[in-house]
């Protein structure tokens, strides 16, 4: 199962609830304002780092770059994908749940 999160963790609890209710082995994609959850040095870094032991976490690189960041700003273990990679994630998982 793929979870998508498009909200900044500072604005909404979408990421927090997603990680709380995601099963081990589920994939999580951060995009739009959700990319702020993938960035090093925020107060959410420990939460996201811990989640990496249960879930694969991806971040959409074009949304990172749009917001003045790049791969170097991303928490270790979080993988970057482009839109083609986003499509692959959807295809590779049986269902997709958007945490709006």
């Amino acid at each position: 199962m793929l979870h998508t999160v498009n909200k900044s963790p500072f604005e909404k609890n979408s990421l927090e609830t997603c990680l709380r209710l995601a099963s081990a082995g589920n994939a999580v994609l951060l995009f739009e304002d959700g990319v702020y959850g993938a960035v090093k040095g925020t107060r959410f870094e420990p939460t996201v780092s811990n989640a990496l032991s249960n879930n694969k976490i991806y971040v959409l690189v074009s949304d990172l770059e749009a917001r003045g960041m790049n791969k170097d700003n991303v928490i270790d273990g979080v993988e970057t994908v482009d839109y083609a990679g986003f499509v692959d994630l959807v295809a590779d998982n049986k269902s997709v749940q958007a945490w709006l």
Binding site: M1, R20, L21, A22, S23, N26, K94, S95, V96, Q97, A98, W99, L100
Partner: peptide, 18 residues
């Protein structure tokens, strides 16, 4: 609880979020 909710979600084919 969280485990049951996660399990239920994992069984779904189509998830519509609003």
């Amino acid at each position: 609880d969280e485990a049951k909710m996660a399990e239920m979600m994992g069984q779904q084919d189509v998830v519509l979020s609003f």
